[in-house]
Design a protein around this nucleic acid. Structure first.
Lengths: 229, 229
DNA sequence: TATTTACTTTGACAATGATCAATTTTGCTC
DNA sequence: GAGCAAAATTGATCATTGTCAAAGTAAATA
C-alpha cells in the first residue's frame, strides 16, 4: 500500500519539469521525502512566519502567495500553477516563510523535505542547475513587480499587465483571459479593486479595450502601449 | 605579467566568502574567466537592458543597483558592499540586466564569466550551494522590500528601517549610521527625499530619535516600534 | 580657506489613489 | 430557476505623499 503510494508519487514527480530527466532511483529517493497535501478551496497551506519543512511542488490547482498585513489586507506576490514549485528558497535558509500560501481552488501539492532536496541536488547537478534557474527567474519576476509598484502609475501598471499577458507576437487585437478574480489581479498590481475597475473603465471609454467578465479584449496593442495619460 | 595578475586575482577570489574553501586549481580556473574593473565614483558599470557577460564580485567600494524610470527618477533596489556578489541571476538566465549598476564610491569589481561560473559549479557542489543560498537571501530580502513598499505607510517604513538597521539586541538606545546619503536611503524606502526628511523631523519632535547628519540616535527602541500613527 | 556644488530642510500646493457606501451584476447552491 | 453570497461597479470624499520652489547647510574642490 505504502509502496503503491510512493510509486505513484515518483511517477507524479517524473512529470514535473523540475524533476524530469531524473533516474528512477533518484525519483524513488525523493518520493520518500515527500508528503502529499490535498487542499480545498480557500484552505491555507501555511502562514507567513511558519517554520518550513521543505519545498512545494504544485501538481494541480492554483495557490496564491501573499503578504498579509495587520488590517486584513494582503498583497498577492505570486500565483502558482500546475508544474511549478514554490518555497524553494526556504530549503537553503533557516528562516520562516516570508509569505502565506492559500489555495484558490482545490489543489494537490507535494511537500519535499529540505534534507531530501539537498541530498538529491548533491548527487545530481542538473537538479541544482534547475533550482538556480528557478530562483533566478523568481528574482527577476519580483524585480519586475517592484518596478511596477514603485515607478508606474495605476494606469501604466494596468497597461503593462495587459500587454504582458497577451501573446508575444505583434497582432494588434488579442484577448486576455484573467486567471483569477479582478480583486486578485488588483492586489497583484498593488491597486484597490475600485481603482482597477475604474482604470479598466477608462480604457474602455477610450476604445482601447473591451471588458466582458474575465475576458479583456485589447483592440489596439500599439495605441494601448503608447497610452499613459 | 599576466600570470602575476591572474595569481593576484586568484588570491582576491580566495578571500571572498563565495569562493572561500576552493582549491588553488579551482581558483586558478575561475580567475582565468575574470575581468577586473576599477570604477570611479558615479561611474556606471552597466545599464538596465545591457547584455550580461557574467556575475560580479565586489572587492572594494560601494555600488548601487537601481531601477531607472523615464523621468530620470530611479528606485534603488540594493546597495552592494565588499565581499558580496551581484548579478548572480543573469548567469542562469538568458536575459538582459533588470537593473542598472552605478558606483557610489571608487570601487574594485571582478566580473566572472557565465561559462566559468557554470563550470566551477559543476565540479564543486559547495559553490552551487552557496549560490543557491545567495539567491535565496536576495529573494527574501526583496520580498521584505516589497512588503515595505506595498503594505506600510511612510512612517512605518522609516521606523522599520531604523529598527532593522540597529544592533540585534534589545538595548533601548542605539545609533544608526546611514551608509549613504539621505536621498539614497529615501529611494530605497520608496520615499521622496522631502517626505523622508519630514518623517525624521516628526520622530525627532516626538523625542523618539535624534538626527545629527548621517547618524540617527534611537532614544527608545520599544516606543519607536510601537509608534505608527 | 574660498567658492561652488550637492544635499537637506521647510513650506505651500496638487494629485493620485484609497476609503466608504450604495448599487448592480455575477456566480453558486439548493 | 430562485435565492443568496460574493464580486464588481460607481460615486463622493479624503488622506497621504509627491511636486515645486526657496532657503539653509554641508561637503568637495581648487
Amino acid at each position: 500500500m505504502i509502496l503503491e503510494t510512493r510509486h505513484s508519487i515518483a511517477e507524479i514527480l517524473s512529470r514535473q519539469p523540475l524533476f524530469r530527466g531524473l533516474s528512477e532511483v533518484e525519483l524513488a529517493q525523493i518520493s520518500v521525502g515527500c508528503r502529499e497535501f490535498r487542499v480545498k478551496k480557500n484552505e491555507v497551506l501555511f502562514h507567513k512566519g511558519d517554520i518550513p519543512e521543505g519545498m512545494h511542488v504544485m501538481v494541480m490547482g492554483q495557490i496564491k502567495l501573499a503578504l498579509p498585513s495587520s488590517q486584513g489586507v494582503e498583497k498577492i506576490v505570486h500565483m502558482c500553477g500546475p508544474g511549478t514549485t514554490f518555497g524553494e528558497a526556504v530549503v537553503f535558509l533557516d528562516k520562516p516563510y516570508p509569505v502565506s500560501a492559500q489555495a484558490m481552488s482545490e489543489s494537490l501539492v507535494l511537500l519535499v523535505s529540505k534534507r531530501v532536496m539537498l541530498e538529491a541536488m548533491e548527487s545530481n547537478h542538473m537538479l541544482s542547475r534547475k533550482m538556480l534557474a528557478g530562483l533566478s527567474s523568481r528574482l527577476h519576476e519580483l524585480l519586475g513587480d517592484m518596478e511596477s509598484c514603485t515607478l508606474r502609475t495605476s494606469m501604466q501598471r494596468v497597461v503593462c499587465f495587459l500587454i504582458q499577458s497577451g501573446v508575444a507576437d505583434e497582432t494588434p487585437v488579442f484577448d486576455v483571459a484573467l486567471q483569477s478574480s479582478k480583486q486578485n489581479i488588483a492586489s497583484q498590481l498593488n491597486l484597490a479593486p475600485e481603482t482597477f475597475s475604474r482604470v479598466l473603465g477608462h480604457l474602455s471609454e477610450k476604445g482601447l479595450i473591451q471588458v466582458k467578465g474575465r475576458t479583456i479584449t485589447v483592440l489596439d496593442r500599439q495605441q494601448l502601449r503608447n497610452f499613459t495619460a
